[in-house]
């Protein structure tokens, strides 16, 4: 696939998918979505990129080994669970911080639950890419 247009196009598409995937992840707690769906969407972007420009380029664009990303994701998810220990709660007890909370509005919620979902996102993203890149390179 040597089409320049395709390559440039995919690059943009991959970017859009990546942004969209974050959005899917963040809205997951209240509407359909979440870390897994987000991670899959994000990975799809890079898969397209790899198909269009080759895994070499895709790996370069990623900068980090995908399996390292996946493992970091697992670590982050675990740390999100461990965070509760600081407050004497059980593993994976959600810890919430509401920024700018008022009587009527809970403000911007920051929580370990969100961190956990980010972990899920990274795991899915990294794992899918590990698999697809390796398959692309071997097959």
């Amino acid at each position: 696939m040597n089409s320049v247009i395709l390559r440039v196009g995919t690059r943009y598409l991959a970017g859009i998918l990546l942004v969209f995937s974050f959005y899917m992840m963040l809205r997951g707690h209240n509407e359909p979505g979440g870390g897994f769906i987000g991670g899959l969407t994000g990975a799809t972007g890079f898969v397209l990129y790899a198909i269009a420009c080759g895994t070499q380029d895709a790996r370069a664009a990623l900068r980090v080994l995908p399996q390292t990303i996946a493992m970091w994701g697992l670590g982050i998810a675990l740390l999100a669970g461990l965070f509760a220990a600081l407050f004497g709660d059980a593993l994976f007890t959600g810890q919430w911080l509401f920024i700018g909370a008022t009587e009527s509005d809970k403000g911007l919620p920051l929580s370990t639950v969100l961190v956990f979902d980010i972990g899920v996102y990274l795991v899915v993203f990294g794992s899918i890419l590990t698999l697809v890149f390796a398959m692309e390179e071997e097959v």
């Binding site: 399996q67 493992m71 697992l74 670590g75 675990l78 669970g81 461990l82 059980a90 593993l91």
Partner: peptide
């Protein structure tokens, strides 16, 4: 509850660190 969680958490943490 941590007493129960630790035996699961420790090998996972070990796995992450050993992989990195």
């Amino acid at each position: 509850s941590w007493l129960l969680a630790l035996p699961i958490v420790v090998p996972f943490l070990t796995a992450v660190l050993a992989f990195l």
